[in-house]
Design a protein around this nucleic acid. Sequence first.
DNA 1: ATGGTTGGTAGCCAA
Length: 263
Amino acid sequence: MKIVTWNINGVKARIGNLVHWLREAEPDIVCLQEIKSVDEQFPRAEIEALGYAVETHGQKGFNGVAILSRLPFDEVNRGLPGDDADEHARFIEGVFSTPGGALRVVSLYLPNGNPITEERKFGYKLAWMARLEAWAKARLELEEPLVLAGDYNVIPEAIDARNPEQWVNDALFQPVTRQAYRRLLNLGFTEAVRNTTEEPGVYTFWDYQAGAWQKNNGIRIDHLLLSPEAANLLRATSVDKHVRAWEKPSDHVPVAVHLDVAA
DNA sequence: ATGGTTGGTAGCCAA
């Protein structure tokens, strides 16, 4: 089974790219972020025509997440618990039945957090990460295969940036940000790409500005975290870097994990 | 080199 995360940066502007990529990559489950669409305007018909079930958690203008799946959804949960005042659409969980039992997959869009001088930005990011840690800790107690996939807006280590010095004042690379991410990992998750790729220079995002793609000035911020039960099934990972060179690309590319689960 | 580009929206904001 192939499970992919992709920050698509506007699903309505990217529907052509998305359909082309779905035909080419043939994923079983896709976690999308930054759909930038309300649920009613999500282009579901084109995706359903390819055999996918579609569940969305959108909002007007920005943010928004979705899960596309060849398996039917047994259950869908929208929103990260822990703050009733938080109206950002950044979290959706799907539950599926496999021959081995339940499989849980989350599509998350962790707050960017810039600038770090603004509490409503950076403080919100750190608070959101604390809520995610609490949620994940409780979910791990189920002892089920769980894939926490998404745009984490976290550069875990210096080797995850082509030019780490460029990011020292950025919310994505603050020590406190990386600490919070590591706390999440240390609950018992396996980070799929880090655990299957030895070479440095694996990036998932290249800024539109200043020729970042042409210079390969990228960062690795899209991650797939596996519960112990999911990590036992880990076979391989892959990054669809070529998608960044397509016409009208997202600034992120799809990142995949292949699990030993019958699709 | 505090520049540069894109999507959604019609507020320039968010990234």
